[in-house]
Design a protein around this nucleic acid. Sequence first.
DNA 1: ATGAAAGCGCTAACAT
DNA 2: ATGTTAGCGCTTTCAT
Lengths: 327, 327
Amino acid sequence: MATIRDVAKLAGVSVATVSRVLNQNGYVNEETEKRVRQAMKELNYKPSEVARALFKKTSKTIGLIVPDITNPFFPELVRAVEDVMNIYDYTVILCNSDEKTDKEKEYIEVLKQKYVDGIILTTNQLQLDEVSEWDIPVVVLDRPLSRSYPSVIADNYGGARLATKHLYDTGCRKIAHIQGPPHVVNAIERFRGYRDEMMERGLWDERLIISGNYQLKQAKEAVIEALNKYDIDGIFAGNDAMAVGALKAVQQLGLRVPDDIAIIGYDGIPLTEMTTPELSTISQPIYEMGAIAARILIKKIEGKPLEKLHYVLPVELVVRQSTRKGE
Amino acid sequence: MATIRDVAKLAGVSVATVSRVLNQNGYVNEETEKRVRQAMKELNYKPSEVARALFKKTSKTIGLIVPDITNPFFPELVRAVEDVMNIYDYTVILCNSDEKTDKEKEYIEVLKQKYVDGIILTTNQLQLDEVSEWDIPVVVLDRPLSRSYPSVIADNYGGARLATKHLYDTGCRKIAHIQGPPHVVNAIERFRGYRDEMMERGLWDERLIISGNYQLKQAKEAVIEALNKYDIDGIFAGNDAMAVGALKAVQQLGLRVPDDIAIIGYDGIPLTEMTTPELSTISQPIYEMGAIAARILIKKIEGKPLEKLHYVLPVELVVRQSTRKGE
DNA sequence: ATGAAAGCGCTAACAT
DNA sequence: ATGTTAGCGCTTTCAT
């Protein structure tokens, strides 16, 4: 790899001059500039981002911490972040935290050591005070962390009400809800939406709550158990994977979807179009969430003011076969 | 952030000594070491990886270039790479190339500027001569690039024969194949396996070949068209997404899977367990592929000899409802 | 066993 | 308009 000295020597100028044309600051003669550019091309010179980072304390790199890229909700989110960051010449270090506080903290340390310019964080675990020590721009994505950091989330409460109401509108009255893990804020919000909607309609019944952990298998078993005990004609699953679990449970018991039991999921991942019947769901603007978070982070990095600190994006009801009775 | 000078000052020693305890090289008095460690702790000192990288020309970072993390085949691969790299204290920069040569080249330039220690590459596009210029360790993953780079792939040819034979064994005789994109080496290998198996059994018929591009929708339409024209009793899809497309096509035409038409996919992604009926597939050891590629890369980076240059991992037939007739 | 000094490749005053 | 110099935070000779 050629260095700036090589270029300077070949062009017969000082290193400073090369730096000037490189960064387009300061004055440099047109003639000289040409020679320098020529030399750079000849040597195929690319400045060392590392040396730059050392001097400027900025690396054109950000960290993106997600629980698990293997969870089908995250690939699109990650892709969005990468796409936007790419436009602004940033590079993305991907970190899987498995929702473990320790791993998150370790990653954050490492990221800081590498002079990343900012971090996008998808987490529930970290406490406010732990976060506030970081002297580095942070944006919180998908799950609200605290009031003090910019955040991008979707309207979980509203989406849950929408889902519940939709089941009601299709004629369901005994609507069960498969909850997500109790420590995940999103899951709690969705539960609240379900509860309020049910209460307002006088349909609330604690026995209709099924405990889930966002996983297909566990949800399937829990639903089988619930269906054997209680009378249920609709299921609102806390995410799409659990909706598939519910679907499999219902089918295994020889019941029909949607005619005996209607099912709606949450998230709107591609998977929902691949089942038979296809699943109704509350679709989150996943790509947009990632893209907005990335844009906000860049603004913070560049020290520009944010129009808004907290973004709550609208969700959308997607009606498919699993809630379309009698078709 | 505290620097090494701060630590040295606080401990009352020279910078060199701090560096020595940091890297555990050279001799340092036990007493002194204690004082230094104490000072490091007090200041919560973490060495700057950037300064280190500048000196050592190594950054404890690798680049991972995949076509599109949104394609459900890749999250697990990425996760595996990250997991292994994490053990060895490497960090992973994720790059989505969309299979575009330009994007790949740009990323490689950027990665080199950042002094990444190595690159794991999933691609078909780059030519041998373009690659060979890179003065940096490279491992090729999932798709063979050239003989000169270490590679980790699965046995696509053998898997395709296995899939075809399985359909034959379940009684299918008019077995169609949905091909993947013609420029993807994997897809070609799978096609070859299918062709050879069909020929050996005297079942070969060019009209049974359906063109696909690894996408669900396109495959679905192509299958509908094919089913309307020809008599088909089994479908071997070049990947799982297209198998879902085939499933939907068959169901839409009012035919039964597997009794009228048996279907088998390829890859073994989780999705195959979520459809109804669940899909038979050729399962690739995705996680293992990623993990091995990561281990190889580390060996290359550390200058250790490789036991093997090219890894071809075995695949496995997974039989599910979509090929289990009469149950 | 420890310190002093040079240098990794770049940028930004300051000088000319 | 260009060159000289110091320094980002670290590691590694070379002295002592």
